[in-house]
Amino acid sequence: MSTGTEGIERKPLPFHRAVWTLFLVQLSNWRWSWRGMVITGMVAPILTLAAMGVFAKESGGQSVQQVFVGSLTLALLFETQNKVAANFAFMKFNDAFAFYAALPVRPQAFIVATAAAFTLLALPALVCTTLFGVLILGLNVSLSPLAVPVLLAVVLPFVGYGAWLGSRANSPEEAGSLSLLSVLAMVSLGPVAIPAHLLPDFMVWIGWANPAFYASSLLRQVFFGPVGGTTAVYFGVLLGYLLLMWVLSSKRIAGFGGTAES
């Protein structure tokens, strides 16, 4: 038994091992989230895809592609932003942040692990929506090698926004409502699921401030091409958004292993 002043022999877990352990902990959320994943991450996007696809087919191939990537964006928003908001709100109101803060683990390890776990948890919805999209809309997809980095650039800002939203909410119920509202607003505002030429000008302009617009545009580029300068710019915009969310979320969970909440 150590007495403290001599220092205990044990050392804190290295960063990468802490990330891995926390990743497994966050991944265990699958045990309760899979039902929600089937409904909001698969059924809702597929229904959207099927319903809007009927009208989009009459407007041409570009519209069909837009409905497809819009549905993928919807699936990813539900599976990442919405789930992380619920997870963080739950932790905030159950003193879970205090639990983690009392462990010798850096808060960055927790944030990285959460992002990785919820990204992985979003994959079944992404794959399922893609397969149904190809089948229902008859799309010819040629996946770019940039798909993986683009997917991360799309998903991580959503995770960050969910973390910020969940840690700011006044109750888990409020987090759920605000997150759902955000998902619907982000899919509706701008050319996310509906092509720009079918939207009024002001909606297209609003879209420039909507990260979901950049997400769906990037998805369209990696699924249907072309990949070029716009891809890099949109990639940069989403990374900037990710950085902003990282700063805001880190501040919200301050006290977790470092700067104490004041």
Partner: peptide, 15 residues
């Protein structure tokens, strides 16, 4: 955190 173990009052984190 390497010397103090804390049991919070409210519900559990690793649910």
């Amino acid at each position: 955190s390497m010397r103090v173990s804390y049991m919070p009052q409210t519900a559990f984190a690793l649910n």
